[in-house]
């Protein structure tokens, strides 16, 4: 069995056994009803006490064949409002970049927690979209308003 497949089965087992509070993650179903371990859907809760609180933001995680040598790709819905998210929804995060901090030992749990951390702590040095980045650096009032509006759309409970 390929390393990619073994690893993804273990990731699934371990996620089901134990995962951080408020998060969910599951492999997608293929058209024939079987599980596609290379495509996952997950939800990232905003941290309590931040602009992102009381909402769960959906992401898709796509694992390449070379996983875990290469990192998975993480995407929010397209048009997601965040300085480090490309217009396509792709997340720009150093631990998800093979040339930067990706290491094969980084687990799914570490990835989703890294994305949660990124929500309220954007990296001003790697702008990925114009609107959120500009507002974040020059007009914090507008930025916060937009983030709160978006959080309402993904509100939980």
């Amino acid at each position: 069995m390929s390393l990619c497949k073994t690893r993804l089965q273990e990731e699934r087992k371990q996620w089901r056994k134990d995962h951080p509070f408020g998060f969910y993650a599951k492999p997608n179903k293929a058209p024939d009803g079987s599980l596609d371990l290379t495509q996952w859907t997950a939800g990232i809760p905003g941290r309590p006490g931040t602009l992102w609180a009381d909402a769960s933001f959906p992401i898709t995680i796509t694992f390449p064949e070379e996983y875990p040598s290469k990192p998975p790709k993480v995407k929010f819905p397209s048009g997601f409002y965040h300085p480090n998210v490309y217009p396509s929804g792709t997340v720009c995060l150093s631990i998800l970049n093979e040339e930067q901090d990706w290491r094969p030992a980084i687990t799914l749990k570490q990835i989703v927690m890294g994305v949660q951390e990124l929500l309220d702590s954007p990296n001003p040095d790697s702008p990925a979209q114009e609107p959120a980045w500009k507002a974040y650096s020059k007009d914090r009032v507008t930025y916060e308003k937009k983030v709160r509006e978006q959080a309402k759309r993904y509100a939980t409970g």
Binding site: L3, S69, D101, R103, A105, I106, Q110
Partner: peptide
């Protein structure tokens, strides 16, 4: 043995690769 060999197989011989463990 098998997994680290698979990981290193993509590297050019003597140069090796980053240790797969984050922080190492």
């Amino acid at each position: 043995r098998a997994t680290i060999h698979q990981y290193l197989a993509g590297s050019s011989g003597r140069l090796g690769k980053n240790c797969p463990v984050d922080g190492c």
